[in-house]
Design a binder for these strands. Structure first.
Length: 597
RNA sequence: GGCGAUGUAGCUCAAUCGGUUAGAGCACCAUAUUCAUAAUGUGGGUGUUACUGGUUCGAGUCCAGUCAUCGCCA
């Protein structure tokens, strides 16, 4: 019985390009998970999109002297191309500035208001008369009232690390207009009363105790145990989703409140886009459906506490009964550092995906990242590791296995899978071992232990290499052709199985192996960039079309006589010089290059 | 400052409920092999399990403390 699997992926802020941290933290794990479930025959809905709002985008826009909209549209477009190139298979990757997202976010706000989960409160904040607005914390600098560091930011002091209340800063000033004297002014905001969900959240944790990562569970319980306070959900800014109430024209929904709704709103958009407006309910109002949130560790409370609380608060929305799906698991990853140092946009200590995609195969980047996934603790992307793992593992163990046996078979058996009489016990033993991997690796992926799953598959590839050296068909063929035929057949079938197990991780090269083995069709569907029109504006999105996908998470039944295709080297060998070259880019000014598919 | 996590071989990581001599891959050395992109196989491990102390017949694992790193919160 196929399951409904919702893959909710963190929404990147559209204020800069995607980097390996994004890939390792959320997008690649989500894609591997989704591709596996598609092969396994489950109904997958994987959605995400660009977070168009929020102060990081306004800050970037001000820095460049352009509008927030132009910043987010620029990076949204680059997100689409980058992810298409590296094969992140979203059913829909949209953004939060669609009419659809605005409308539903406002409906959610109004539903929570009606049901008594929101309240109003007055706050005092810093106001700029020059800009005629309340300044977000990130626009403010001043002297830290704890350590007296003179250049503390409005929300945090970089010297002593304390989180700060901007109003209490000594001599606070605007970053845009440092000469201006800011005034403290009162404003009114709506708050989300999280405390009302305390018991429901604890019950929700109990239900999922067994399968969440321990650190995620402990952290979430602790967050609730410390006491849930109301959180402001509106702000005095002009870039964002309007508050749908009379007299609130000057305010917008706070980005933390509306961005997480994207998992839900994008599901509805997807259903509309495919012309089946109720299709989203198979995931969101189906007690058998499982929702997985792929995020980074900095986002845990938003996905295990705040988002579930929002969902509980709107349960029954757009439907005739309650039972909305809460996240089934939140497999948060830790961080991916770079050459021993933390990612930093301002220092350009970063590995940008659009840049490295011009130099390396998508599957090489996917392989190294997945082999290093920060599932249990922070990991470190270093170029020497990349060189070694791509050359010795991906190429040496797997690429070479494919190449050595497919070329041998292609040359010696007239381009066909050889026929054989009966397999020996050694052949049967190898196939049994390899075939067992399908269940083992499937189980690991379902449990979101992706690094283990990949390692297990590579271990099996090593087994096949050992078997081949042991059986040596290139010698046997001279004396016992019948035996050589069964060895080659056995190896090809093992490769066929391994191709399936590796496909979620290495979709591009698995497709090539699939073709070399003589199969037709695409293992996976196609990723396309589409443009969708709403009443007042259009937007582009990345969509996955699985209509013609033929891949199955199933044992190989390779037929003797099947015509092979001439194989070519699967993996490009990397030169040692890349290590120094790539390291030289770190920390240096970067020019954004055009993304060419 | 509070909470949570992490620290194991040169590197990247394992080690189920506390149980044999702490294991794999990479790198390195030796060797076999020539089907394969010099790619593969086999053999080769003297580790203060960050540190200090404790519980126990027995601790990488449990407890207390210290140090370093990361995240969240104040």
């Amino acid at each position: 019985m196929p399951k409904h699997i919702h893959v909710s992926v963190a929404w990147p802020y559209a204020n800069g390009d995607l980097h390996v941290g994004h890939l390792a933290g959320a997008y690649l794990p989500a894609d591997i998970f989704a591709r596996y479930h598609r092969l396994a025959g489950n109904h997958v809905l994987m959605v995400s999109g660009s977070d168009s709002h929020g102060t990081p985008i306004s800050v970037e826009a001000d820095k460049r002297g352009v509008t927030a909209r132009s910043i987010f549209e620029h990076y949204h477009e680059r997100f689409l191309l980058t992810q298409q190139k590296i094969g992140i298979s979203y059913d829909l990757f949209t953004h939060t500035d669609t009419e659809n997202h605005h409308r539903i976010a406002q409906d959610i706000f109004l539903t929570l208001l009606e049901r008594g989960y929101l309240y109003k409160e007055r706050q005092t904040l810093l106001y700029s008369q020059i800009e005629q607005r309340f300044l977000p914390d990130r626009y403010i600098e001043g002297e830290c009232y704890i350590c007296h560091y003179p250049k503390a930011r409005g929300d945090q002091c970089d010297n002593c690390g304390s989180l700060l209340d901007a109003v209490k800063l000594i001599n606070p000033r605007s970053r845009n207009h440092p000469e201006e004297t800011l005034i403290v002014r009162e404003t009114e905001h709506y708050f989300f009363e999280l405390g009302k969900f305390t018991d429901a959240l604890l019950a929700y944790f109990d239900k999922h105790e067994s399968h969440w990562r321990p650190q995620v569970m402990r952290f979430s319980r602790n967050f609730v145990a410390e006491g849930l306070r109301g959180r402001p959900i509106t702000r005095d800014i002009d870039w964002g989703i309007p508050v749908p109430l009379e007299g609130w024209d000057e305010k917008r929904l706070y980005v933390w409140f509306e961005a997480v709704m994207g998992y839900f709103t994008a599901s509805l958009e997807w259903a509309n886009n495919i012309g089946q407006p109720d299709a989203w309910k198979a995931w969101w109002y189906n007690p058998e459906a499982e929702v997985y949130n792929f995020i980074g560790k900095d986002n845990v409370p938003f996905h295990t506490v705040i988002w579930p609380a929002e969902l509980m608060g709107i349960d029954g929305i757009y439907h005739d009964r309650k039972g909305i799906s809460l996240p089934y698991d939140v497999p948060a990853n830790e961080f991916m550092n770079i050459e021993g140092d933390k990612f930093s946009k301002s220092r350009n200590w970063a590995i940008w995906l659009p840049d490295i995609l011009t130099r390396y195969q998508p599957d090489a980047i996917r392989y190294y990242t997945a082999a290093m996934f920060p599932e249990t603790h922070d990991a470190d992307f270093d170029w020497e590791g990349f060189l070694n793992r791509v050359n010795s593992e991906l190429l040496g163990t797997w690429g070479n296995l494919v190449n050595r046996m497919l070329s041998f078979a292609y040359k010696r058996y007239e381009g066909k899978v050889p026929d054989y009489d009966a397999l020996t016990s050694a052949d049967e033993a190898l196939l049994t071992k390899i075939e067992g991997g399908l269940a083992t690796i499937g189980g690991l992926i379902e449990a979101v232990r992706l690094r283990d799953a990949l390692g297990t598959a590579m271990g099996l590839a090593r087994e096949v290499n050992a078997y081949l050296n042991n059986r040596a068909p290139w010698s046997v063929i001279k004396t016992d052709p019948a035996d050589a035929a069964r060895i080659v057949y056995t190896t090809l079938r093992a490769i066929d199985n391994l191709k399936t197990m590796l496909a979620p991780f290495l979709p591009f090269t698995s497709q090539r192996v699939h073709e070399y083995l003589g199969y037709d069709g695409q293992m996976f569907g196609e990723l396309r960039i589409e443009e969708y029109a709403e009443s007042s504006r259009t937007h582009k999105a990345l969509v996955y079309d699985g209509t013609n996908a033929v891949g199955k998470w199933a044992l190989s039944a390779l037929q003797p006589g099947q015509a092979l295709r001439e194989p070519k080297a699967l993996i490009v060998k990397l030169e040692p010089e890349i290590v120094e070259r790539e390291r030289s880019f770190l920390g240096q000014p970067r020019v954004e290059g055009e993304i060419v598919l």
